[in-house]
Design a protein around this nucleic acid. Structure first.
Ligand SMILES: [Zn+2]
Ligand SMILES: [Zn+2]
Ligand SMILES: [Zn+2]
Ligand SMILES: [Zn+2]
Lengths: 134, 134
DNA sequence: AATGTTGGTGTTATGTTATTACATCGGTTG
DNA sequence: CAACCGATGTAATAACATAACACCAACATT
């Protein structure tokens, strides 16, 4: 996902920090990285993250209480951003983002069968990446 | 999942509290419920939860920082407890636990294709249950 | 019996993550 | 101008989780 031009200064700073980082970062880690740029309080980070999450530029990893820049590109198989899954390496911290239509279908099927209206779906695999598993 | 007999007192108290509750509870909510039974500190709850999670009697909901008693029964379609998914109602707090072999297969397929060794999988749907969606 | 080991417990303190409350500032609109 | 809206700055606090240390009971080894 490309960085849009209509971000505010704080939003752009947080987005840049996440984009530069090789892995996920907690809000407080982001705060520390941005102290030199004038950040003083957690709320500055959380407010920027809230907007970036809305825009789909950033994802929250629930199982880590951390955030990653979206790795989607316009060349991806589809622009649909409804359900994204993450594979998180416990050893090196690397995160790979993917999506799978078959999983989407199964979850939609479950929701329909139960009358459940899903607003947000979290799918996270914790384990070892190929490099770390050996 | 039936309550085994080999739980310690604290583990049994936490398990009972979760079983009685109609929805998920945070560790601190559990602590408050068990003050009358002698609980004084968060660690008493977290240590019991750690064991109950190991035993598969309790699940952690990552997107809520909360815990629920497992709703599996021996009559369920399978005893396999590898991957469980949750549908969580934002309105009434009700949680329904389910599993889906097709999803398991797709995730296993992804993992194999990437050489990723998954240790734990989190699948959580946030939304509105049929009763609350109207 | 004495010893060592293991696993659970109790307590205090601390670390980490997230939000509430309130004041301010700048641009837009009527 | 005045009203409004979105973003910002700051301090304080709430909510979630773990570290460190001491104690004890159960059990195995000697
Ligand atoms: Zn993405
Ligand atoms: Zn790795
Ligand atoms: Zn279960
Ligand atoms: Zn509901």
């Amino acid at each position: 996902m490309n960085a849009p031009t209509n971000l505010t200064k704080n939003q752009a700073l947080v987005f840049d920090a996440l984009t530069r980082a090789e892995g996920p970062m907690s809000a407080y880690t982001i705060l520390d990285k941005l102290r030199d740029h004038g950040f003083r309080a957690p709320l500055q980070v959380y407010r920027a993250l809230e907007k970036l999450l809305e825009l789909g530029l950033v994802h929250r990893l629930e199982s880590l209480n951390s955030f990653v820049a979206c790795s989607h590109t316009t060349e991806a198989c589809c622009r649909h951003h409804g359900t994204v899954a993450f594979a998180i390496c416990e050893s090196c911290g690397q995160v790979s983002e993917f999506h799978d239509h078959a999983i989407d279908d199964r979850l939609a099927h479950f929701a329909r069968s139960k009358g459940f209206k899903a607003e947000k779906t979290t799918i996270e695999l914790r384990g070892l990446c190929s490099a770390c598993a050996g």
